[in-house]
Every structure is written in C-alpha cells, then in structure tokens.
Write a protein that binds this DNA or RNA. Sequence first.
DNA 1: TTAAACTTTCAAAAATAATTGAAACTTATT
DNA 2: AATAAGTTTCAATTATTTTTGAAAGTTTAA
Lengths: 167, 167
Amino acid sequence: MEFKEAKNKFVQTWGALGSQWGINKTMAQIHALLMVSNEPVSMEDIMEELQISRGNASMNLRGLMDWGIVYKEFKAGERKEFFTAEKDLDELAVKISRERSKREIKPTLKILKEVSTIEAKDSAEEKHFVDQTSKLYDFVLKADNMLDKMTEFNDNWLGKLFIKMMK
Amino acid sequence: MEFKEAKNKFVQTWGALGSQWGINKTMAQIHALLMVSNEPVSMEDIMEELQISRGNASMNLRGLMDWGIVYKEFKAGERKEFFTAEKDLDELAVKISRERSKREIKPTLKILKEVSTIEAKDSAEEKHFVDQTSKLYDFVLKADNMLDKMTEFNDNWLGKLFIKMMK
DNA sequence: TTAAACTTTCAAAAATAATTGAAACTTATT
DNA sequence: AATAAGTTTCAATTATTTTTGAAAGTTTAA
C-alpha cells in the first residue's frame, strides 16, 4: 500500500468510526486528516482533500475547535488561516472526556437525581424504579469520576505506574 | 414529580443520550423502559408505552438481544413473548464493552495496523503519518486492553479494591 | 475608504437513518 | 390440516441530519 492510499483509508475509517460514536462523518474526517498532517492545513486544502464545501468545512472546524482538539494557526506573511490537531493522544483523550462529561454526563446525572428521588409510595413497580435509577445514578457518577481521575493520572507517577500495569 | 412523569422523563432522557452515542433513539428508549420495569414486558406494552409500530419494536428488540443486554422470557400459559433487560449495571457495562470492542475497536485496530506499516520512504510527511498512526494503534490497543481488564476486575478482590480507590 | 481576500452563517437541498404497516412466516391449538 | 396467535421482514414512507452555496460579514492592505 502506498502513502496516498493509506492516508485515504485512514481518513475514511476514522470518519466511519465517528458516525458510530455520534460524531458526524466530516468532522471525524477533518480531525483524522489534521492528525496525520505534519504541518498546518488550510481550509482550501481540507475542502480539496475531502471534497466538501466551504460551509461544511467552516462549520466542522468550528465544532472541532469547540471541542478544544483543533487549533487555528497563523503563518507569517499568509493571510489565510491554517489548522492543526492536538496530536498528543493522552491530551486528546483528556479533552474529549472532559467535554463529554460536561456536555452529556453531568446533565444526565442531574436528571437521574431528579427521577430517582420521587416519593416511591408502596407499589413494587415504583420501588423498583427508584431503586434502579438510584443505582444508575451511582454507577454513572462513579464512571464519570473514574474518567476524571484517570485523566489526572497522566500527571503523577503513581498513575503512570498503574497505567503501565494495565498494558 | 409523580411516578409516571418520572418514568417518562427517564425514558426520554436515555433515548436522547443514546442518539448522542450512536444508538438509535428507540433502541435506547426500549432499553430504558425494560431497565426500570420490575417484570417482563410484552411487545404490545412496549408499542403502547412508546407509541411505536410493531415492526420498529421487533427490530430494535432484536438489536438489543444481539447486544446481549435484553432477554426473551416465556410466561407459563402465555403464548406471547416477554422481554427483560440486564439489570446488573456492572454486567451491562461488561457486555457493552465486549461488544463494542468486537464490532468496532478490533476492526479499527486491524486497519490502523495496515496503514501504519507502509514503507515510509524519506519524506517528512510520510514519516509523520507512520509515526502518528503507529502511536494511535498503540493507544487504541492499550485502551481496549484496559477496558478488558476492568471488566475482568469485577471478579477479583484487587480490582474491587482499586475501583473503591477510584470513587 | 475602497477593494480584495478570506470566513461565517443559514435557508434550502440532498443524503442518511429510522419507522411504518402489511404480507410472509412460525408456532401452537383444535 | 386448518386456523388462530403471534413475530419477522422489508419496500416504501417519513423524519432527521448533514451538506451546499451564495449572501453577509470581517479583516487586512493599498
């Protein structure tokens, strides 16, 4: 397999994976493209490589920047903007976790708390509901904290050691 | 908030969360409904509660069973089928991890391996591509193994201890 | 201040994914 | 073996999401 083919395969695969995880295909593809580019890429080049419109490129780049995993760069003497992706994978994982926690997990926890604290009367049905949603609340909270701890882990030696154990 | 309202809120929320994670809304809603039901639910009841067609219910129940997180049950004397969800959350997490690994991570790893092992010639561009995709391969492999280990963890005391530490 | 270079926005169009419903199929009962 | 009770399948429809492209907006330079 030669370079161009491999690059294309990678971009396509990453895009397809994105769809399965609720990230739109183009956004994932742009991210993939930037990840494997050794230097900043202009919007023109992205449009050209992925065969997408200017509007599409613009909106998805904005989305990626909102996630904090793609940055604008300015090249001396050049008027137009260039883009680069966060290439440190640990850092990437941290940013994605933090953002998903903020956007999705925290709001879900709030609602789980609400519904799990209703008056359960005496019916088995209602009791089970309260019991199950409480467990779910605890579980999601635990998982969320765990991710948080793991991301902090990257900064301390004990964490690094533990992560090594996991391999 | 009273029971019916809370239940509905929970089902809706779980459905919306599903969409964001690449699971279709109805599938997530059916799962939510079964999770908080203290006894098996018939297809009729699911259709009625979620206001969906028979075909829709059937296909999504099949999907949930393929994930191994919903089971068919037979009630003595009853002709029709009933359904229940896996209610043990640790077990649920294990099943989802295993299945996503099998369906999505493993195939992705295969492709990452392929594209990261091309001949890199001498250009900086190609070198960077190989370097970055190799790192990605290692990272995804590590994460995949980690999930695996964690799911096994539930069975041993060291793991339980560690998980306690994480809270 | 004007014009050129470039980016963003958003309504409309296109593409994709989910849903319906009725026919085909399966299984149990008489 | 015929019928009834229930389930699955899938082509057609509907709903949702993504993409386009042109107008509006911004920034820089002359």
